[in-house]
Amino acid sequence: MASPLGRVLRSSTTIFTFGSLDNADLPAFGALVAAEVGPTWVYGLVYEVVIQDDPFVRQVVAATEGLTAERIEDMRQRRQVPVEITALTVAYRQGDRVYQRLPPRPPAALQPIWACDETTTAQVLADFAFFRTVLNAAHCPSEELLAASLRRAAACRPPEQEKAYLLEAGRELARLLAADLPRLDAILRRLAP
């Protein structure tokens, strides 16, 4: 964890949004990010990245002449408003234990947000209790998010465990979504290696 991805703009019990100025190093869809809240670490899955316009961008877009590659790159790097990234809270850690449920408190404003390394990702998403949290989230593309996060979590494991992890996750989904086959099918298709 060299430098944080950004800082919290706003948060609630279920989601937190942070701003990032670094356009080049945006976290991927489904990536696991973390914020420290007192004695706990809160984990969320990135599900929305919003790049908003600002007056400068508008001007540049309006001015059709003189739009060189350097200019574009300069505009991207020195933005007036940050890129807004929102994550769905799925778990928290207290001491050594990871709980796949909502944390007692959301991250405070301006709290730094960190990307999680492979070990942490594999550990936090080892259990499948967070499926319900993702599937029940109305405000995010839950099927896409679940598939993307599971594929990322699988990739964080040793290669020989990757497939077994995905299969196990698939079977757990088949159990949870026994009554909603179109949804199950949609997720499994996105999950297939």
Binding site: L167, G170, R171, L173, A174, A179, L181, D185, L188, A192
Partner: peptide, 22 residues
């Protein structure tokens, strides 16, 4: 099967992953 629809509309079993899960 967990759902009657599995009889009526079988899932795509050509996909090895889906096959293994279902």
């Amino acid at each position: 099967s967990t759902h009657p629809a599995f009889e009526k509309t079988p899932p795509d079993l050509d996909n090895p992953f889906l096959r293994q899960v279902y």
